[in-house]
Nucleic acid binder design. Structure first.
Lengths: 329, 329
DNA sequence: TAACGAATATGTAACGTTTCATATCGAAAA
DNA sequence: TTTTCGATATGAAACGTTACATATTCGTTA
């Protein structure tokens, strides 16, 4: 008696159904086949518990129905939301997600890309920091939030517009002494445009705008010192602060409280991202919210688009303002 | 002139290096080979930019160096931390992670498992809710936090011990009127033991312990009503509350504040999970912290263990207590 | 010098698919 | 009845590897 310890193959199904190998293949590829044949094959496959071997298929077709998602850190709520969106959007189109985490390490990013290339994924969606990544032009690549070159499509929020929006909101709410605070990596990225948009909006109205831009390695202490240094008789030199992201806004709010200032009565504060508290669903602060879901879907659309001849090099998605307690409205 | 639009294969490398196909294979599998041959092959591979095709390899060897991770929702900070840990642990051992998200949908869980089985992963790590999942016994499976059967290893925190620990802490801090609050899915899981441990600790000391256990679909309102119903002249009938997780603890804290109670002066509150604020890194509340990193590593260890003959059916990992502002210490 | 054996390179046969050229079958046209 | 044609089933070749049986090489021993 034949031992059946390994999974059944198409050959087994063909024998069981009494049809040819090619016919079985057609059935599993939705290629027209006589109704009676199709039934016989499906029956036999069910009896045997047959499942197609996607490695054999991938070898033959050079298509694997899988895409890689490269992220710096899935622990951050923005990235995890993005991951969720990308994973769902891929799944909805029959694609698997191969997840790689780089921990913000540029050489890890390069290694991920190589590993993932070798694994013959059909494409890569990457949110990376290494500005000189080498990516195989044969392999579809979509970059999130980081512009590489005209030939690599980049999907991002409308960062510039978001900065403008923050400025307009603060003006609307009566602010006249704005400040922009930024912390981030040393490499230039799309999120730099947030401050540009903010400052530009004030400049257009003939108003000056203060700013302090730091890098990750500087830590947060300089922000506290800066704020403390701009106190004058219990009053802060600024009445509206725009922070490059919600994480910074949350910390800055603490600093302001420490200085005896009330938010939003004395100073109004706007962040960027639109993160929500995991338990209550509340915003952490007033903020410019990024369209995470659309970011994810758009990336997948672009990655899987059949016609890869004229893709956009940058797609900016609209952001919105949401009040979250650190502004008067 | 030959067009080289498709990736180079071992055959190309063999020709370029002037050696046999098998020799190239040996080089890429770390099988001993003459030093000069190895050099020639490596040179040739570099010149051609050769990378092994893991689909062909997977087809031949039936090993794919990839594992699936099935989670209900990667947006929740506990799950995302787990995902990060599993992904890193797998990567450290040369394995890719295929991520599947089920959105707590039991039929989606089953579908994920099938899809992933068909993709010939080497194993599955799953955190699922469907108690009657059908999993192919040929395929290594490790369950996190959910016990299936003796033959499916389950990795979990020491939930019972964590409940006891919470009880001991509250006693230590002077509580005499304990309450246990639980919200969760209807299916029995390891986390049910939290309440058991908590109550058992009080019972052992001859003390009674109140409890309210609800399911997800009940929502949180009943908790508020329950608490409000146990107020007597500005005083709550309980002075120490243990919540089944941090998310609930955070909400309960809000309810208590609404009722005019001070935390921790009037009531002390302990959660479970050990989640931290994404921006500040602070705990949301006093809590029993789960060893997320070890949970992930242990799962991977178990999944990839060579000898699969006598695996444990349940591994419980130790939890710790951490004060986070909702207890007196 | 011949014969042997250890070590290692070679080449071929799978692995489970898809694809394509060929064979088969019926029905319609002559 | 014979021919032709369209439709569709068949079977073999190929995808890029690994593994195994065979061939080759070279240092040792008789």
């Amino acid at each position: 008696m034949k031992q059946r310890d390994s999974a059944p193959t198409m050959k087994d199904v063909a024998r069981e159904a009494g049809v040819a190998l090619g016919t079985v293949s057609k059935v599993f590829n939705d290629i027209p086949v006589g109704e009676d044949y199709r039934k016989r094959v499906e029956e036999a496959a069910r009896r045997l518990g047959y499942q197609v071997n996607s490695y054999a298929r991938g070898l033959k077709t050079n298509r694997t129905c899988s895409a890689a998602l490269i992220l710096p850190d899935i622990t951050h709520p923005f990235f995890s939301a993005l991951a969720q969106g990308v994973c769902s959007a891929l799944a909805a189109r029959g694609y698997r997600t191969i997840l790689s985490i780089t921990a913000y390490d540029r050489s890890a990013e390069q290694k991920c890309i190589q590993m993932v290339q070798q694994n013959k994924v059909d494409g890569i969606i990457g949110l990376t920091y290494n500005p000189e990544l080498e990516i195989d032009p044969r392999l579809p690549y979509v970059s999130i939030d980081r512009y590489f070159s005209p030939s690599v499509p980049c999907v991002a929020s409308d960062n510039f517009g978001g900065g403008q929006l923050a400025a307009e909101k603060l003006l609307e709410l009566g602010c006249t002494r704005p400040l922009f605070l930024r912390i981030g990596s040393r490499v230039p990225g799309e999120s730099d445009k947030r401050g540009d948009g903010f400052e530009s909006a004030f400049r257009q109205r003939g108003m000056a705008c203060a700013a302090l831009r730091l890098n990750d390695e500087d830590g947060l202490a300089p922000f506290r010192d800066f704020l403390a240094g701009h106190m004058d008789g219990g009053r802060l030199a600024f009445d509206g602060i725009f922070c490059v992201n919600d994480a910074l806004a949350v910390r800055v709010r603490d600093f302001l409280t420490e200085l005896g200032l009330r938010v939003p009565e004395d100073v109004q504060l706007i962040g960027f991202d639109g993160l929500r508290h995991f338990a209550t669903g509340d915003l952490y602060c007033s903020t410019i919210v990024q369209p995470v879901g659309r970011l994810a879907e758009t990336s997948v659309d672009l990655l899987l688009r059949e016609d890869r001849s004229n893709l956009p090099s940058l797609v900016c998605l609209p952001v919105t303002y949401a009040a979250g307690g650190t502004t008067k409205e």
